[in-house]
């Protein structure tokens, strides 16, 4: 029964210390924050705000309609990815790659990632053929979209669900 008052006393002292400590930190903030915010403004590595996939699509494409890729584009994605940290994607297409008509951009989007855009790749007609591959991270089971934007403004979308057994960290 003796321990209880002692405990209270201790807690009180701790609270007092925290108060003082807190005041100290608060006093330091105006000085410490300025360089921090400047760095954040230019910092490419700073985390960007979370986004829903609809917002990402709107940001990238506005209200332009997405057409189903059908047989215009072939995407190799696993049905089940054991490790979300490394999910291979291979994109091949028979869309023309000529100087006047070519695939300008390829977007890889994972719907349920914190920040759905995985990567955007811009191509030039010098690529000769559309065939690209990379590895992406997935936070969990989700739809993956691959959207090809051609130079004349058409958008072709391929969509497939990938089941992820072990999430690949927030991404």
């Amino acid at each position: 029964m003796n321990t209880i008052p002692q405990h209270n006393h201790d807690a009180g002292r701790r609270r007092a210390l925290r108060l003082f400590g807190g005041a100290g930190v608060a006093a330091m903030i105006p000085l410490g924050l300025l360089p921090g915010t400047a760095a954040a403004a230019s910092g490419l590595g700073m985390p960007k705000p979370d986004e829903k996939v609809e917002q990402t699509l709107e940001r990238l494409f506005g209200k332009r309609p997405l057409q189903a890729a059908g047989d215009k584009m072939k995407v190799e994605l696993p049905l089940i990815a054991e490790n979300g940290a490394v999910v291979p994607v291979r994109i091949e297409s028979n869309l023309p790659m000529q100087a006047n008509s070519y695939v300008k951009n390829i977007y890889i989007i994972t719907d349920k990632n914190r920040r759905p855009l995985n990567a955007r790749m811009s191509l030039t007609p010098d690529a000769g053929k559309l065939s690209i591959a990379t590895n992406i991270r997935m936070g969990g089971t989700s739809d993956v979209r691959v959207i090809a934007e051609t130079s004349d403004g058409n958008l072709y979308q391929f969509k497939q669900e990938v089941k992820v057994t072990v999430g690949g960290c927030g991404g």
């Binding site: 940290a85 920040r115 995985n118 990567a119 690209i132 991404g171």
Partner: peptide, 10 residues
């Protein structure tokens, strides 16, 4: 090729 990549690349 020019690619803009994010943290969601392995």
């Amino acid at each position: 090729l020019e690619a803009e990549t994010t943290q969601a690349v392995s």
